[in-house]
Write a protein that binds this DNA or RNA. Sequence first.
DNA 1: AGCGCATCTGGACGACTGTCAAGATTTCGT
DNA 2: ACGAAATCTTGACAGTCGTCCAGATGCGCT
Lengths: 209, 209
Amino acid sequence: MSTAEKADRVSRRQVDKFEERRRELAAAALTTLSELGYARTSLREIAQNSSFSHGVLHYYFRDKVDVITYCVRQYKAACVLRYDQIVTTADTADGLARGFADGLVATLVEDATMHRLWYDLRSQALFEESFRADVTEIDATLERMVWRIVSRYGELRGAPVPTPSAMTYAMFDGLFQQALLRHFSARPGATTDLHASVLDLLGRLVPRS
Amino acid sequence: MSTAEKADRVSRRQVDKFEERRRELAAAALTTLSELGYARTSLREIAQNSSFSHGVLHYYFRDKVDVITYCVRQYKAACVLRYDQIVTTADTADGLARGFADGLVATLVEDATMHRLWYDLRSQALFEESFRADVTEIDATLERMVWRIVSRYGELRGAPVPTPSAMTYAMFDGLFQQALLRHFSARPGATTDLHASVLDLLGRLVPRS
DNA sequence: AGCGCATCTGGACGACTGTCAAGATTTCGT
DNA sequence: ACGAAATCTTGACAGTCGTCCAGATGCGCT
């Protein structure tokens, strides 16, 4: 083994460990953000949610924006996983519709804090230019996710969906966001209303045969 | 004039002036919030946007939460005004629909910073219990506003709107929010797409005759 | 074993925050 | 015009923030 090969192996292992730590810290940052929100999250608080001290954050990240940005990117991956498992296989239109509605209700309750973080960060993107690109990209991913389900639903119903993808996503997002606010307000009917309105909207998107 | 009457007049005038100052400071706070967002707004920054020094804020408000809460309430009044002027009188369904779409596009552009503040505060309400009641109340007001227009639209079309009020509001809000993000991202088509999708959704809400 | 580098700690820094109070200034009825 | 009450300014306070760094600790290689 040449010295060059050895050096390569060493640096590769170091890079791997480096990336692993970054992910670990980003996970701690993510839970902190989802609990406190963007406005109240500090680097020291993030470090306390990890097994390290606050100084290490500047060893793995340039500054606070770098931490948050990396977080958001990691959040996106979790998002896609969450949405992808909503509907795996459904052979009937009604089955797909029920699976979609059930999945949204489930993630509304189980991942409530993560969802509120998403809406918080999307609002921050309206103020801070630096977040905008990442937020827009995540939004596009979510839009594609919704569109995959809706267009498959139209397929199963035997009719193409005449609604633009962006509009479709926006409406479902509106429904979900209102349900989330109701959920945190502990007002009753948040989950059942979301379920019903998702089915309702889904039915409207495909023209009656 | 008795001494009691005199004292009453004096205290009444003082209360008026007191309230006037509160409104003045709240206005400064609102412009600051709409420019910087909740996370980056400080009391000193608010005072700099007014003609007073930072200390006076604690003369007119208990603490920071009191300032923000009062702000939000004042914001609500502005909201209602803005939405109310969208559609004053329309005698045809198509006229009402066009007026609604035009109004939303206009306020999207003109009051963009205020709208992003609203979404920011609504996100904060998902984290901070103290904002929740006010945010929910404003949301209900906006819902009623949208419902007034939509139900009137159904009336003009000669058919009742079978969609629940909450669901209707949520979908329009979703459309508007996405348009706002696109507007700040300077992506093209934000206004035209909003206009088209509002007309589209409005048409879908009322069953074909 | 001992060297060298990666990793991590804990404290220090200046800037900023919300809050408060003492005193200066203005307002206003008499 | 005088005095009291309302109003406003200014500076201070105890914290917290992001950032940085000197030094401790750990680990892998020869």
